[in-house]
Design a protein around this nucleic acid. Structure first.
Lengths: 186, 186
DNA sequence: TTTATTCGTTCACAATGTCAACTAATTTCT
DNA sequence: AGAAATTAGTTGACATTGTGAACGAATAAA
């Protein structure tokens, strides 16, 4: 058998068995962000496992396609914001997607610096297809929860994301007081 | 002002405004794993922002220290499993931490191949300190939720993680039928 | 109209993730 | 016991992701 660097988490043995609570010592297993990171890592691996071999596309690329799907026609910066990527990352990603014919780019008549991006028919079809697969994967991941619980989870995450985003931008601003500019936006 | 590739998500404008639900078209904004990824990304950035400048350590490194904190004394593989890293990643990370004096390594009397890892006093102190900061950051991120809601969220995530972990290993096994070995473990 | 800002591209690099090859030690099988 | 397979840890190679800065061109602000 080949020597594979597996993530030998096996049958969930390492996930959050209830541990004895030491009264004073902080424990990373109780940390929300730790749970979050671990689950997100799992989710990425699951996605890569099902999507990469089938569609020859990275998780980031299909995420961009799916975001563009609901945005319609937008400049690159806008696409980056909604995807949670830097514009430098987005520029490269979009280039690759244009090369493969999934994204079309046209000039922005309103602004000569900007470009407008849309999904090509192929991109739309691909995006739809992967998105369906993704919803199926999510079903499996969430299978342990009732419909009601799933909705609660999604709603809680939504709220936490909003709060965290605000917090993040506060941190950025206090960290680099060089650009007081950003204070203006709300 | 410097030209920084900012993630201009600004005041949460791009996060989950309720969107009109097209009846049939799947929308990535409704995808659990998408929300998860986005929030995890935010969380990482927040952590890096507060930890890196203060302690000169990467998020992954402190995560390893914190995991080792509750494990006590374990071989490398064990530490890797609990941290969600490959043993190759863990080997490198541990080397760096040993070099900086945060982790001590001794031979395993039970098994000549294996090594036993523990936190050094410095490592323990550092781990404690960062962990406290992390709990504070989490407070901020979760500030919008009531205590009860926070507990619900944590519990739901815990269950989803367990289910997802099982699902992941199933996928791996069906994907590579070369090693039927792994079927044995439950 | 000069100055500052913004859009997108590109460069350079750090961090992370993935897998295969390798050794030494251990276990399993016969 | 001895050969064969397995396992722990290290290392090499490489793909992906994340971050910040420099730059030209276009636009907005002074």
């Amino acid at each position: 058998m080949q020597n594979r660097d597996q993530l030998n988490e096996k049958s969930g043995d390492y996930f959050d068995r209830l541990h004895e609570q030491s009264e004073k010592e902080p424990d990373i297993r109780d940390l929300f962000s730790f749970q979050l990171q671990r689950l997100a890592g799992l989710s990425t691996r699951i996605a890569a496992l099902s999507i990469r071999p089938k569609y020859g596309i990275t998780p980031r690329e299909w995420r961009v396609l799916a975001v563009l799907k609901y945005l319609g026609e937008v400049p690159l910066q806008e696409l980056a914001k909604h995807s949670g990527l830097l514009k430098s990352q987005m520029s490269r990603t979009v280039s690759a997607m244009i090369e493969r014919g999934y994204i079309a780019k046209t000039a922005n008549p309103q602004d000569g610096r900007s470009i407008l991006l849309t999904l090509s028919p192929e991109g739309l079809a691909l995006s739809r297809s992967i998105l369906e697969d993704s919803f199926e994967r999510n079903e499996e991941m969430l299978a342990t929860l009732s419909r009601a619980e799933q909705q609660i989870l999604v709603e809680l995450l939504r709220r936490v994301t909003r709060t965290s985003s605000k917090y993040y931008h506060e941190l950025r601003n206090t960290a680099s007081q060089s650009d007081l500019k950003s204070l203006e936006e709300e």
